[in-house]
Amino acid sequence: MTLSTFYFLVQQTMFYSIPLLIVAIGGMYSERSGVVNIALEGIMIIGAFVSIFFMNQMQSTMSGQWLLVLAMLIAAGTGMILSFFHAYASINMKANQVISGTALNLFAPAFAIFTARMLIGVQQVTFMNTYRITEVPVLSALPILGDLLFKNTYLTTFVGFAILIVATIVLYKTRFGLRLRACGEHPQAADAAGVSVKKMRYIGVLISGALAGLGGLVLMVPVTTAFDGQVAGYGFLALAVLIFGQWRPGRILFAAFFFGLMKTISAAYTGIPILLALGIPSYMFKMTPYLATIVILTFTSKKSAAPKAAGEPYDAGKR
């Protein structure tokens, strides 16, 4: 393998891994607070749709990094709004969290396609990619690392790493993180210690919504220029990353990169001479990330470190 193929592989892997990382960390906040959020897929779709629609409308007057930053804020905000409905159902109404999440997953693609066709006549929302950073000044001159991380990259990659670092600190080094984890493990104890379980869970779900919405946009920007009302099961892959990552930021990073690499192989194997030479049919490559998920979960699910109270409505009277 030549060095340039290697750089290509790493850069491609980033494009798929970073959104998985962001969304899985979002899922982590929610599940650590005790609410299972299988609506990540739907929230990604809504976040991507609204923010890309914004880019589509604004790109005649704006371009480049500032437009991307605005779009990222919009994606996160939209995701947060949608996740509010999940929070309300799960926390206030003590509804079945899987059903509520499924409703949002049904809603999101229908809403995106309906709105796009009503407003612009077609299902696909296109955007111009003016966001690629060819070279980060100074840093791209670093040996090896410069080529790997600071060339042909996107602002979103660095945002992803920043979210990871913040999540690690918040979860393990702050009072808020401790309280959040307590609500997911033993909400009755947290309540007895004076923590508002309801408030904590709301914060957890809303953060997950913001990050999932952002993740939807981050997934689309580097790899396409048209949004078609779907994110190809990425929200569910992010859930798998969360489980494989055992609900811990460090392991989630590892899991996200593993799946990102699998996805890169499936999407870009024609650009990797060694894989192309194997002569394996294309459908095998396309299956790779999904097969790998099942294989990995088969070997890691037996001893699961899932938050103990995740998925259960909080009942103050229960012991």
């Binding site: 509804a95 059903i99 409703a103 229908a110």
Partner: peptide, 18 residues
């Protein structure tokens, strides 16, 4: 656009979750 039906069904499911 017929997708409005899917939106309605999603909302029905959400309310039945409640």
């Amino acid at each position: 656009v017929p997708e409005v039906i899917d939106i309605m069904i999603a909302i029905i499911i959400y309310f039945s979750a409640l």
